[in-house]
Amino acid sequence: MNNDLIKNWLEKQSALVVDGAMATELEKRGVDTDNDLWSAMALVHDPDAVVAVHRSYFDAGANIAITDSYQANIPAFVKAGLTQEQSGKMIFDSVKLAQRARSEYEQTLTDEVRQEKPLLIAGSVGPYGAYLADGSEYTGDYSLTQQEYQDFHRARLNLLEGAGIDLFAFETQPNFAEAKALVNLLQNEFSGIPAWLSFSVTDQAKLCDGTPLTQAVEYFNQFPDIVAIGVNCTAMANIEALIQVIAKATDKPIIVYPNNGDTYDPVTKTWELNPNAKSFSELVPKWRAAGASLIGGCCRTTPADIQEISASFKA
C-alpha cells in the first residue's frame, strides 16, 4: 500500500484502532520477556506466539498491527548470541509474522467487510534508549550525533521496509534530537514510506528530554511522510490534555496509545496495579472528541482493551 493510499485512509476514516501490548500477551503464553531484547526474544524462541498475539488483536477489532521489533536491533541480537545474518532475519521475520496473522484473519472476513477499513502493518522502531534497556526511553537522557542515531536505525528500517511494512511506527520517542535524526533519515533514504511519530512524554506536555511537546509537534508537522503524530506509553489520565496540546500544533491525524493505567518502575522493571484506573470505554469518547483518530493501547493492555476501543468507535 503506497503513501498516498495510507494518507487517504488516515485522513478520511473517522477512526482506526491500533493494537495493544505484545509483551503482556506473550507472558500469558509462557514466553520469558525478562531480558535486554524484551518481547523481541520471542522472535527467536516462539514466533508462533507472536503470530497468536497479533491475531488476537485483529480478532478484537484492531486495524493496525505493530510489529514485534520495538526492541529488536542487530547489536542486541548479536549480544544475545545470534550472528549478524540471524539478527537481520529476526527483524525481517517480525513483519512476516504480523502479515501471517493478518492473512489468517482476512480469511475469516467477507469481501465487503475486508474493504471497509484497512488492515495495516506498522513496523515498530523504538528509540536508542530501548536498546540501552535501562529505562532511557522514559528519560531521553542520552546523546548521540545525528549520524550515530541514523547509523543505529538504518539497518532496522531497511529490513522492515524489505519485509513489506505499510508504514513505520517511530514510537516511544523521548529525545528530540533522535526524532529529528530519524525523520531526516526517513526523508532522505526512505522517502515515500509513511510513518507515524509517537512521543514518550512527561505529564507536563514535554518530551522526556525536556523539549516542549508543542515545539516538537510543530517541527514535525512540516514533513509529508509523517502521516500522524501523537504519544504512547503514558498514563491514560494524561491523554486528553495531551491531545489538546497536539491538536493546536498540527493538522495531521493524532495517534494515542497509552498504558492500561498501572504504574511502571523502570528501575525494578515491575508494574504496580492501579485499582482506580478508568476504562477505555469511559475515556475513548473524550479522546475522540479532543481530536484523536488513531487509538490503541501500549504496555499492559490486552485484546479486551482493544475490543473496548473498537466498540467505542462503533457506538
Score class of each variant (00 low, 15 high):
G30S: 07
G30N: 08
V31G: 10
D32W: 15
D32R: 13
T33N: 14
D34H: 09
D34W: 05
N35D: 13
N35W: 13
D36Q: 14
L37E: 12
L37A: 13
W38H: 00
W38E: 08
W38G: 00
M41H: 12
A42F: 02
A42Q: 04
A42M: 06
V44C: 09
V44T: 09
V44K: 08
H45M: 15
D46V: 10
V50I: 13
A52T: 09
H54I: 04
S56E: 04
Y57I: 00
Y57Q: 03
Y57L: 01
F58T: 15
F58R: 07
D59G: 05
D59H: 06
G61T: 04
A62T: 05
A62Q: 01
N63D: 09
N63K: 02
N63F: 03
I64Q: 01
I64F: 07
I64R: 02
I66P: 01
I66E: 00
I66N: 00
T67F: 05
D68C: 12
Q71L: 08
A72V: 08
I74K: 08
P75K: 05
P75V: 11
P75F: 11
G81I: 13
G81Y: 10
L82P: 05
T83V: 15
Q84W: 12
E85N: 13
Q86H: 05
Q86K: 14
S87H: 06
I91H: 02
F92A: 05
F92N: 02
D93A: 05
D93S: 07
S94F: 04
L97K: 01
A98D: 05
Q99W: 06
Q99V: 11
R100Y: 10
R100Q: 14
R100G: 07
A101D: 01
S103G: 13
Y105V: 09
E106Q: 13
E106R: 13
Q107P: 07
L109A: 07
T110N: 15
D111Y: 11
E112V: 14
R114V: 09
R114W: 12
Q115M: 14
Q115S: 14
K117Y: 12
L119P: 02
L119C: 05
L120T: 00
I121Y: 02
A122H: 01
A122W: 01
A122G: 03
G123W: 03
S124W: 00
S124I: 01
S124P: 02
G126M: 00
G126I: 07
A130I: 04
A130W: 00
A130Y: 01
A133S: 12
A133P: 08
D134L: 09
D134E: 10
G135P: 06
S136T: 15
Y138V: 08
Y138G: 04
G140F: 08
G140H: 07
D141M: 11
D141V: 10
Y142H: 04
Y142A: 10
L144P: 09
L144F: 00
L144H: 00
T145G: 10
